[in-house]
């Protein structure tokens, strides 16, 4: 029972991480229809920005943390503007865009390696506070991430519902052609979405940096997690991405309660498999934002 309680807590903590990843990726995909594999390196770039600011620049951690979403937003927007947009204009096939995005991943990751070296970069001297609730141990990072995902989701919902740009994003994700017809500047909206989605990923990246450190390849696995979460939750649904993230986190954690841990990598994908066969549109696709 103690183990169950701990696994539940772990699942929630990791679920929050996955939810953040899925949220950003899902937002970008549903609005622009681009499978953005270069999401991974952008994720890494933001972690390195924080590391530079804190470990090299000597800024306080709080200041560095603010920097992450800003850097990621800039990097994400840049990637869209320089790489994807020219492609979109020429109406390229989804295969080509996918390969383009993979090519971008290779380029960005090797650039990061050339600049920072392949080794792990950590924020020296940072140790999260530990909370002990009966049999359950929690770190400040786990709790912080749950709070972060709720905050980010709330802010995002508010933005989408209350602002002009938000409405345009929703219109674009509903029907791209229609949005263009009614005069929405799809380029600009896509740019904003890339910035926004990347900034959300950066929040998760900060937690990764603090928990295990940053490497140039740190974004490789998160892209796949993000993809799985967004699809399981239902593409285009913000509550879906959040619930999907927590679901994947919990299933992964609690699933390994009885299943040997060497199957850790498969669990999320088995869940995805089952969900897609039962409900091809994702679990929470009905709950549109």
């Amino acid at each position: 029972m103690d183990l169950f309680a701990q696994l539940l807590a772990n699942g929630l903590g990791n679920g929050a991480h996955y939810a953040l990843l899925g949220l950003g990726f899902g937002l970008i995909f549903t609005t622009t229809r681009i499978v953005h594999f270069a999401y991974g390196p952008v994720f890494a770039v933001s972690a390195f920005a924080v590391w530079l600011a804190v470990a090299v620049g000597g800024l306080p951690l709080a200041a560095g943390v603010v920097l992450a979403p800003l850097t990621a937003a800039a990097a994400g927007a840049l990637v869209y503007w320089l790489a994807y947009r020219p492609f979109e204009r020429r109406g390229m096939s989804s295969h080509s865009v996918l390969i383009l995005s993979l090519g971008l991943s290779i380029v960005l990751e090797s650039l990061l390696t050339l600049i920072f070296g392949p080794n792990i970069h950590t924020v020296p001297g940072f140790a999260p506070p530990i909370f002990i609730l009966g049999p359950v141990f929690l770190t400040g990072l786990q709790i912080g991430e749950v709070i972060a995902v709720l905050g980010v989701a709330g802010a995002l919902l508010l933005f989408l519902r209350q602002t002009r740009y938000g409405h345009a994003i929703l219109a674009l994700s509903d029907d791209r052609d229609m949005a263009r017809i009614v005069g929405i500047d799809t380029d600009r909206i896509s740019l904003i979405v890339f910035a926004l989605g990347s900034a959300i990923a950066a929040v998760a990246a900060v937690f990764t940096l603090l928990n295990e450190g940053a490497t140039p390849s740190m974004g490789f696995n998160p892209v796949f997690v993000a993809f799985v979460v967004a699809v399981v939750g239902g593409l285009g649904s913000i509550p879906g991405s959040i619930l999907g993230g927590f679901l994947v986190g919990l299933v992964e954690s609690l699933g390994l309660w009885k299943i040997p841990t060497e199957w850790q990598n498969s669990i999320a994908f088995v869940l995805l498999f089952v969900v897609l066969l039962a409900r091809p549109q994702g679990l929470f696709a009905g709950a549109r934002r």
Binding site: G103, V107, L114
Partner: peptide, 15 residues
């Protein structure tokens, strides 16, 4: 790393 970088760039330029 440079070779990987060039490989990625060639792929992108080709596309």
């Amino acid at each position: 790393q440079l070779r990987l970088l060039i490989y990625g760039c060639v792929l992108i330029l080709f596309l």
